[in-house]
């Protein structure tokens, strides 16, 4: 009986092998390497030495790591929580009272930025925020002096670009959630004389709160990992002004060849992902139970 039971689960084996080799092993290896002075070339590449907490001590003392951690928090809060989720919710709410033609046209426009390959979206955003780009043309047309956005305000540029790129996902999630809100509930509130914003705050939003929570977790995880958009638009620059943690990990490991320090930065990011991931799993479990 037990043998049969194990045999039944045999088809799961290929997935387990793949997940172990390509996901679990790199995570374990990352934590391990972060305690060594492994390098891309030279002595550290041939025989890396155990250096204990050195990389983490350096991290705390370095200027670049605390800055990158802070920029990552700003990037996630501004572009994911405020930008994507806030704007996505606003669009979804507006769509419940707009005409069908408008909402389908706007839906397509918002989704377009999301469906494009990320490198193409990044090029488009680069061109848009460029000194000679479309944004400055528009501002110029309205008599407002433009700026060299990518150089003077790199964080603003990548935050707006990531909002533009990712809002579609939140919009789709919230549209689906709002479609499940029974109409007579809000209609009843209307008859009781509940004003629009009260209805929103006390009826609609509480009804879709579990969708909001899972969506926030998902987009936070996605935004934590954004690399391509930033790399194409500013490459983390000027200096370190838009270097978030993924960009820092990449630079340390591949530009400066310091795999040990790079994996230490990556490990911090992995732990962050794990924390948010645990909350996300818990949320889904509660929803099911």
């Amino acid at each position: 009986m037990t043998v049969r039971r194990v045999l039944r689960l045999l088809p799961v084996a290929p997935s387990i092998v793949l997940l172990t080799v390509f996901l679990l092993a790199p995570v374990v290896w990352s934590f391990h390497a972060s305690f060594t002075n492994a390098a891309l070339s030279g002595k550290g590449a041939r025989e890396p030495q155990w250096v204990g907490m050195d990389n983490y001590v350096r991290m705390a003392g370095d200027d670049s790591f605390p800055l990158a951690a802070w920029l990552t928090v700003v990037f996630v809060m501004a572009s994911a929580v405020l930008g994507q989720s806030g704007l996505g919710l606003l669009i979804a709410l507006l769509m419940t009272r707009s005409s069908k033609a408008v909402s389908s046209w706007v839906g397509t426009a918002v989704v377009a930025a999301w469906v494009l390959p990320e490198i193409v979206a990044a090029f488009a955003a680069y061109a848009y925020f460029n000194r000679d780009g479309t944004l400055n043309q528009i501002l110029g047309g309205m008599g407002i002096p433009g700026a060299d956005w990518l150089y003077s305000f790199p964080m603003v540029a990548i935050i707006l670009a990531n909002t533009w790129r990712g809002t579609a996902f939140s919009m789709l999630v919230y549209r689906a959630a709002l479609a499940d809100v029974p109409r007579d509930v809000s209609e009843a509130a209307l008859m009781d004389g509940a004003r629009g914003w009260q209805r929103l705050a006390f009826i609609t939003l509480p009804l879709i709160r579990s969708s909001i929570a899972t969506n926030l977790m998902l987009i936070t995880l996605q935004t934590l990992a954004v690399f391509t958009l930033i790399w194409v638009m500013t490459a983390g620059g000027p200096a370190n002004a838009s270097t978030t943690l993924p960009v820092l990990a990449y630079q340390e490991a591949f530009k400066f060849g310091d795999i040990g320090y790079g994996t230490a930065v990556a490990s911090v990011l992995i732990v962050l992902g794990m924390v948010f991931g645990a909350v996300y799993v818990q949320l889904l479990r509660d929803k099911r139970a």
Binding site: L221, A253, G273, Y280, V281
Partner: peptide, 13 residues
């Protein structure tokens, strides 16, 4: 939920 960009450094290794 693992940030894929974070594991690229160890995957490269």
């Amino acid at each position: 939920s693992l940030p894929v960009t974070a594991i690229m450094v160890p995957v490269y290794g």
